[in-house]
């Protein structure tokens, strides 16, 4: 069977698997935000950057190959990942204590995992109005990290194209498929895959807030790194 080494540990893989997929199957955590096991990889957040034979590559898009030497859990890479997290925090408006996703949020959990203590950079404080038009769901764009998971889920799984990226550079933002620009006027429904993939707290179900108290949520109980046990994907 083919294999590569990841931080010195031998990881076997099936043909066609990416480094991320092989690592997940082996129960090894590589930080990630724009990857979801059910969706086509995108390679944009760059949290999953590893060194493959000494060169940086996104592990979620890089095909595993026999004999590769992959480094992931090094202080150099983790320092850089922490800086990426800090960038994501200052790019949007993240007030964790008042966020319904707190404790279930992968951005927050990854920041804990990588011991990010402060946002470090100056905040951008972008102006991103909420969309509360839909009867069952709320969009709080303040927290959007532009990972495009909802876009891929809606397009590739739901067959709907409810979401898309618009703008460019630091003005990149999420839009919805309606002339009014409002979620209520799209084909979005709570049964969509897209309603359940947001790694942060943008796409929120109404009238269900704080059912699980803070302190008892996914990443309050286990760190995000521990979740990647064999079979999780």
């Amino acid at each position: 069977m083919s294999s590569f080494t990841l931080d010195g540990q031998t990881v076997t893989f099936d043909a066609g698997q990416t480094i991320m997929q092989a690592a997940l199957a082996a129960g090894i955590y590589i930080p990630r935000l724009c990857y979801h096991p059910d969706l086509k990889p995108h390679g944009s957040c760059k949290l999953c950057t590893v060194k493959v034979n000494g060169r940086q590559a996104s592990s979620c898009t890089y095909q595993a190959q026999d004999g590769l030497v992959v480094e992931s859990n090094t202080s150099e890479l983790n320092d850089e990942r922490r800086a990426l997290l800090q960038m994501l925090f200052v790019e949007g408006n993240h007030f964790c204590p008042s966020c319904e996703a707190s404790g279930n949020c992968q951005l927050q959990a990854t920041a804990y995992e990588l011991q990010m203590m402060t946002p470090h950079y100056d905040h951008f404080y972008p102006d991103r109005p909420l969309d509360a038009s839909h009867p069952d769901y709320l969009l709080d764009f303040n927290r959007c990290i532009l990972c495009s998971l909802c876009i891929r889920a809606s397009r590739d799984v739901d067959g709907k194209n409810v979401f898309a990226l618009s703008g460019r550079g630091i003005n990149t933002h999420l839009i919805v498929n309606a002339a009014s620009g409002q979620l209520a006027d799209t084909g979005f429904s709570g049964d969509d895959k897209a309603a359940h993939v947001c790694p942060v707290g943008v796409i929120l179900k109404k009238r269900s807030g704080f059912r699980v108290p803070i302190g008892k949520r996914s990443y309050d109980i286990r760190s995000i790194g521990d979740l990647a046990e064999p079979g999780e994907s």
């Binding site: 957040c45 760059k46 990426l84 960038m87 994501l88 200052v90 532009l146 460019r168 630091i170 990149t172």
Partner: peptide
């Protein structure tokens, strides 16, 4: 910057 990846966008 096209805005695709975090390091360059931000």
């Amino acid at each position: 910057s096209c805005g695709f990846c975090t390091p360059c966008r931000v």
